[in-house]
Design a protein around this nucleic acid. Structure first.
Lengths: 153, 153
DNA sequence: GTTGAAAGAAAATCCCT
DNA sequence: AGGGATTTTCTTTCAAC
């Protein structure tokens, strides 16, 4: 595990806030030479601290108008049931996030869909009917106040 | 608003799944010339469909070990109270996401923190004591099953 | 062990057919 | 839409602190 210095943190802050700038410009902001800056970035990439990402896609502009958060309760919390549920979720492309949350039997999903019909169809066929699931409670997103990948460093 | 063709969709699928490849390699996968591929990508960038992103940072590796989802109820749903709450949230760096969800008075937050002490401190000083907030219910993330930006296109 | 300058390779961008 | 030239950026090497 790599030790993160203050210089590294400074670099991370600069990188996060300036997605479109070149390494040359980023290095200037950090008051370093390009190569010095590059070496630090490379080390952090190798250590898995910095993860190269595909560009984001505006989900609304490609027709995914609906976003929802869904809390799932399983009908029991045995290892097998959880395994079955989790691998089922991994196969659902409309489920972007899935976390096991405190409470023991509960999962929280982030789901996207074209519209309400699409969402209902999705839930009926792949969630509500699934043998591991006891209940599901959905909250629809009405407005996005904030959504950032900028971490407090 | 730009019209998205099947070719564009094909490009989006390829881009999303291959974050580290060059445009030359991506163009090959799409069976197009570099310049043709590049033109499509550029058009989608200009239309705001493709959004250039800073590389992701592994939050756990920089010491943010705790992630939580927090549902907030405001003490009333007047325009002013909501405005005040939302601008307060925008100023909190530990809150990565904030959505207004169905139900009317409710918001859902995604919060990161170093550890439980940090989270408690954060919640006490900036959430629980805030004059607009009636209640807050937190679910801690115990395990990440899935977290992707890969949209179903 | 870390930094910086400069050369080399590779990729992105633009123009023209 | 495709080929090719130009420009920019990334990556490596090597010398200096």
């Amino acid at each position: 595990m790599m030790k993160i210095t203050e210089v590294d943190k400074k670099i991370l802050r600069i990188i996060q806030k300036n997605a479109t700038l070149s390494q040359t410009e980023l290095a200037e902001m950090a008051n370093m030479s390009r190569s010095s800056f590059w070496r630090h970035v490379k080390d952090m990439e190798d250590a898995g601290i910095i993860i190269l990402q595909a560009p984001a896609i505006d989900e609304r502009k490609i027709g995914l108008k609906l976003r929802a958060s869904c809390v799932i309760t399983l009908n029991n919390h045995s290892h097998d049931v959880r395994e079955e549920f989790e691998s089922h979720i991994l196969q659902m492309p409309n489920v972007l996030e899935c976390y096991a949350t405190s409470g023991g039997k509960d999962y929280m999903l982030t789901v996207v869909a074209k519209d309400m019909d699409d969402y209902y169809e999705l839930m009926s066929s792949s969630i509500l009917d699934h043998p591991t699931i006891e209940s599901a409670h959905t909250s629809f997103v009405m407005k996005k106040i904030k959504s950032t990948t900028l971490l407090p460093i």
